[in-house]
Nucleic acid binder design. Structure first.
Length: 242
RNA sequence: UACGAAGACCUUUGUU
């Protein structure tokens, strides 16, 4: 079964979900029984291609075959719903997971928040973060990135900055994705002072300065008449590895 | 104890 699972994952990674399903069918023909790991990989393969209905169908077959889902299975299902922008379905899966006595971890919560984000439910995303905290599960950089993305997508720059503060208070390190999301939110809201502030934090965090981030930071320097900062940015960007 | 397999942001690919 591990060989089939590896194949299914690879097919999923390259967007060939139909072939992944074929590989799964071929298992039966070869007399190999799919297990929890195989099903989780197949659900994820379907989810990656935004085939959330197929992912749920596979889940149904899994249950019918008497194979027990675990936290990987549920997280993959939630992630599938996220990519298909089915936040209500994601909550349904989450509820059934809890009913089965499976505790959500940081990955599960992040997938839930991502589901809210992609369905443009930023308030729900904040609710999930609060529930996570209440459950005593620590939010990590990715979790916060999902929340930041939810705020950004909804045009809630102030909320994004609030979440960022909470992130720093929780001692969770922002990465390049965090900053990119924050910059996007602030750019859209024309919060140039906030952008300048982020630029300073990025420098302190030694975060990688990508082209798009540089563009927004330069725009902000221009808008706030901080020519000195613009020059500094330019020099830093010109340096190899800087 | 370990010993080829599975889940979250971003990245790749496809669709608009």
């Amino acid at each position: 079964a591990p060989a089939f699972t590896t194949l299914i994952k690879e097919l999923g990674r390259t967007g060939q979900w139909e072939k992944a399903v074929e590989a799964y069918r071929a298992m039966a023909a070869a007399g190999v029984a799919p297990n929890t790991i195989t099903y989780s990989a197949l659900i994820n393969a379907c989810g990656k291609s935004k085939e959330w209905e197929k992912a749920l169908e596979v889940y149904g077959e899994m249950r019918a075959a008497g194979v027990e889902p675990n936290i990987f299975t549920y997280s993959a299902l939630i992630s599938s719903c996220a990519k298909g922008r089915q936040w209500k379905k994601a909550f349904e899966i989450y509820d059934s997971m809890r009913a089965a006595g499976v505790e959500a971890d940081a990955i599960t919560y992040s997938a839930m928040i991502s589901a809210c984000e992609k369905s443009k439910q930023w308030e729900k995303a904040l609710e999930v973060l609060a529930a996570m905290h209440k459950a005593g599960v620590e939010a990590n950089t990715i979790t916060y990135n999902c929340v930041l993305a939810a705020c950004e997508k909804a045009g809630q720059a102030d909320k994004a900055l609030e979440v960022f503060q909470a992130m720093l208070r929780a001692d969770v390190k922002p990465n390049a994705v965090s900053f990119a999301t924050l910059l996007a939110a602030c750019e859209r809201a024309e919060r140039w002072e906030a952008v300048m502030d982020l630029g300073a934090r990025m420098a302190k965090a030694e975060a990688e300065l990508e082209a798009d981030a540089l563009r927004v930071l330069l725009t902000a320097a221009h808008k706030t008449h901080r020519w000195d900062r613009a020059a500094e940015l330019w020099e830093r960007a010109a340096k190899p590895g800087g």
